[in-house]
Nucleic acid binder design. Structure first.
Lengths: 126, 126, 126, 126
DNA sequence: GTGGTCTAGACCACT
DNA sequence: GTGGTCTAGACCACG
């Protein structure tokens, strides 16, 4: 596991997003154990405090839960996962459409631009 | 002119975006004078230094130019405007599509979601 | 007469330098009349105050002198011209050599670089 | 570390130049940590904002990079250093030669003047 | 501890 | 009037 950090976004948010994506795409399943703070910190070469903060936030969002003395686990509540996915997608799309409208694009423009981009970029996907 | 400030983004960036949008949508034309630092600061109820920062960055992006002792003007190079629009739109769409892909959406999914969202939100547009 | 203004240097200094060069290279001779403030201002499309300032400074440096009711003239004292030339050249060379030394260049380096540059740039001269 | 400030040039530019020279002459190596904003500000007896401005500009020129919460470091890309040196030297020499030409000096004149000045000033160098 | 942003207010050079 | 720079001091997020 490696993450290329983007300097503009707090590291803890980048890790949060990374873990959420792992869950959404099924690489982390509900009930799976996630790495300990120390493990993850040394693996990613970052400060344990930062990892700690990541997990705190994930817990606040009820995506991860602590089992005393056993470690942290992905919430076993499967419905939560779909909720996260919808939330993240909803945010993405809202941002996008609001931004495009502010630039003066109309609905048809937006649709055709997306259509083009989606195909154009299919080469880059793996 | 009023801007509702969003606390998560630096004010100077929000003003930058605001002005870029004014240019893109034609409310500010190439060669137009933009407000002075002091004017805009008092209008927006913010510190002149913050406005100064905004203009400095816009100048670095060659969107605005200073004429000594006279004030600042939108760059008279019309071609710049299309460039800005494309840059801003490109960034929006890249972010969006990358994000959706990371969430596991496929091209068809993305397209249909956008189609739906665009119509759904047409009420809000004016 | 036209000058392309460089935004980093005050306009009045740029005009001063321009006039000094005209004198040094003999295009303006000692005793020649120079244009009036209004003439020069309208020719260069700048504020008369700026031209006024230029002339004031040139007068302070005794390069130009006012003859009441007749206009301004290049000083008739020929020796002054050589002085100006030496001053300007001296400043240029001091700046240059100090700068190069600060960058760690040695005497030999400086000489060879200048030799190269001088030849390299002879194409551009007209 | 002390800098004698020249009143004609903005302080932040003088510090920028100072740091660039430190890097070029090898006193600051790629990857080295540079002083924190507060440190340098108190050392040079200037306002932290001024130092901040300095570093911001150096960062924009990719000479320095920020590691979040850790401090700022000289870019580890060694090639950048030669680029800076060439840029700075190129600017010096361009200014110099253009200036001398404008004063009516010919290539031979320039060369001999430099030769003389370099030797003349060798006393001051160390 | 670090840097990033912002406010308040000042002085200066330039047009 | 304009912008450019600087000081003084504050608050915040991040690691």
């Amino acid at each position: 596991m490696t993450i290329e950090f983007d300097n503009n976004l707090p590291i803890y948010l980048q890790i949060m997003n990374y873990i959420k994506r792992e869950i959404i795409t099924g690489k982390l399943q509900p009930g799976d154990k996630i790495p300990s703070v120390r493990e993850l910190a040394s693996e990613l070469q970052i400060n344990p405090n930062t990892v700690q903060r990541t997990f705190q936030e994930l817990e606040r969002e009820e995506i991860v839960e602590t089992r005393r003395g056993l470690g942290r686990y992905v919430t076993s509540e499967g419905s939560k996962i779909m909720t996260i996915k919808k939330e993240m997608a909803g945010e993405l799309i809202d941002n996008f459409i609001r931004g495009m409208r502010e630039l003066g694009f109309r609905n048809e423009d937006i649709l055709s631009i997306v259509a083009e981009a989606v195909n154009d970029k299919s080469r880059e996907s793996r």
